[in-house]
Amino acid sequence: MTMPIYASPEQFMRDRSDYARKGIARGRSVVAVIFSGGVLFVAENPSPTLHKVSEIYDRIGFAATGRYNEYENLRTAGIRLADVRGYSYDRGDVTGRWLANAYAQTLGSVFSEHSKPLEVELCVAEVGPPDGPTDGTADQLYRISYDGSMFDEPRFVVMGGVTEPVAAALEATFADGWDLPTAMRSCAAALGSAADGTKRVLSPAQLEVAVLDRRLLGRTFRRLDDVAVAGILATDTPDAADEATTDGGHPAESTESTGPAEPTEPAEPEFPDGDGAGDPAGGQE
């Protein structure tokens, strides 16, 4: 008769964390950033049909990395939760914080109770009311980790793949209230950053891009197709980029422009790890 091998609880949890982290790091990165018109999602995703970014409800969007079958199941569950809640109460009663909490509790209990943790990392984004502030203070970005820990990010979320170089690149270029073309070019450049300092240029076909457009009433989620993305990435002047967004079927970006395509803001000193405000001490709910 064999005896079960003893493992301390710490070791047990660490093994699971390592397992989940490795699974998530194998994928490609997704970023979600707040810009002047709402929330922008950019994912490196060669498949045009297996989406990493999706609509959940009127003002709520979803992005995920990791194992496709696991996050697809969570995405479906989120849409069902939101639709049932909106149907039994009112559409205005569906909030991003509520949904993010449901995800966090589910991921947390799967992590501690089941033999295999879910190898996913999720982002739930919600845009504020259409007549609200445009500086992003009314928008919310929640990042939910494989173990159920939840972070409220004030500016951007980077998940999946090797996050450090992407987060560092975004940290360097992020500017409050930037417009859509500037934000998209910066996200695309950040997704091409690697740890060894090399840069890849991602083509529009390799990117999955969507926005939650704060100015719209009702359903705010819009996908941007390759043509629209190419139009925005190819333009250098903000004015021309505005026209490109209009041509791409997406409502024109508001008139403010934040200057050149490559802002030169230095990394902010309070986040030396380049991970934005994602440190658990500050951001955990």
Binding site: T76, A77, Y87, T106, E113
Partner: peptide, 28 residues
């Protein structure tokens, strides 16, 4: 997997909302 999202919500199914309601939340 857990109480926050009931199992019926995580069970694969069709894209029909009314069929889902009939299975998971018939009272609605």
């Amino acid at each position: 997997p857990a109480q926050a999202i009931p199992a019926a919500y995580l069970t694969p199914g069709t894209g029909s909302f009314s069929e889902f309601l009939a299975r998971a939340e018939p009272q609605l």
